[in-house]
Write a protein that binds this DNA or RNA. Structure first.
Lengths: 228, 228
DNA sequence: TTGCGCTAGATTGTTCAACAATGCAAGCGA
DNA sequence: TCGCTTGCATTGTTGAACAATCTAGCGCAA
């Protein structure tokens, strides 16, 4: 029987070890401990996660379907590397679905509370210069917008998009630059929704996401050039 | 070495056997040879597809992430069964993304040609009473709408939704009832887009999808009751 | 010195056998 | 008839083995 190790998968709570392993890897990717392009060596990872190679391969399949991992036949699995085209596509889709969710938003929807909480978190974190928390709050803000649509499928889709864009954030590695310009905009959007001005909120978000895309794409290209 | 069998996976063309197996199973599901709720027994399927159980499990993971298969720990894998809530969610999301894609459609986009081809196919099939082809053409019509958005992620998401809703179509098993009322509506929507009336087309699609949802939900409930 | 070809080693993709864990169905007893 | 127990079938996982593939390094020739 394999011995538990540092990254060992905890006893499953109704989840299989493959799923637990996938979740653990997903967290490592989200925390930028596994970075885009990094090769995920089966033998090493199976050992550190205390699972067999077959179980790890199942986990890779899960993550591959979630676009977080790319499996190249006979060469291995790699943490996905977003391309500029990917970033553009993600923001294009985000504009469609987030603005769509906002347009039909009800002012008293629980998602609005979550949006406000995310904004409050970001404002407090900004005071103490904790830009990493600002970045996380920003992601939660967008997740809360999607929550307004009350759709599990849309939430899942948006979650996958967010995980991908987070890879790009990690590569740029400057949460202040990426998120600081938008904190007050987030606050404004919440107020518009709460005041029943859904169309105006959607209009504001549309412009905001265009700008956020510009900021990320140029920063991403700069970071990519600096690493080449 | 495992011997090829009837459902054996062909030699991979750059794809792994797990992926080929997943694709083969997906086709069986789409063709209603594997129907919702059906149990996918590993030992049997591994034999008929001439792969090992581990490889089959990888294929299950792929399909599970695509919501076509549900893996229940220690009980097995089953072809997903759409619930009424699922159908409602799918149509809710389809309205958002298809109408969104239509609103920004360009009249000369190649997707419009594909929409028109799907309509022509449906019209011809209607003449000969080939309702199964009408159903397939209808699915292609909606896929073409998504193509207007030029987004690989959105296309992939919409493809997954379509695969799910197709399960429900299969359970109702009456393509004439489900699709006949909408053929002429599809034709009208194409003409509106081609004429540059994108907003009007989106408006028409919004109402259409509401009605289509009503038709499917009631037919689905009737079919479910008849099988209980 | 440089470029090309070949080989060895590392790794992945898959298979197989085995065993533990789990759930379900059948049988038995109250 | 209902509840409990047991046995069997199946799934979840492991580990070993081997084929297939790729990459890197070495040697030789120009």
């Amino acid at each position: 029987m394999t011995q538990p190790a540092d990254d060992a998968v905890a006893a499953p709570l109704g989840r299989s070890r493959a799923e637990e392993t996938a979740a653990a890897l997903r967290a490592l990717i989200a925390d930028a401990e596994l970075t885009p392009g990094m090769r995920l060596a089966e033998v090493d990872l199976a050992r550190t996660h205390a699972v067999s190679r077959n179980t790890l391969r199942e986990a890779f399949r899960i993550l591959s379907e979630q676009s977080l991992v790319v499996q190249v036949p006979h060469r291995g699995a790699f943490v996905a590397t977003p391309s500029v085209m990917s970033i553009i596509d993600i923001y294009h889709v985000r504009r469609m679905i987030e603005c769509g969710a906002l347009r039909t938003a009800l002012p008293k929807h629980p998602g609005v509370t979550r949006m406000r909480e995310a904004v409050d978190t970001a404002l407090a974190a900004r005071e103490s210069g904790d830009w990493r928390t600002v970045g996380t709050a920003n992601i939660l803000f967008h997740s809360a917008i999607i929550e307004l649509a009350d759709s599990p499928r849309l939430a899942r889709f948006a979650d996958a998009l967010a995980a991908e864009v987070r890879l790009a954030f990690g590569l740029v590695d400057d949460p202040e630059y990426l998120h600081a310009p938008f904190i007050d905009q987030n606050a404004r959007i919440v107020e518009l929704v709460a005041a029943g001005s859904a169309d105006e909120a959607a209009e504001a978000l549309e412009g905001y996401l265009h700008r956020a895309e510009r900021v990320l794409v140029t920063a991403y290209e700069r970071a990519s050039a600096a690493r080449a």
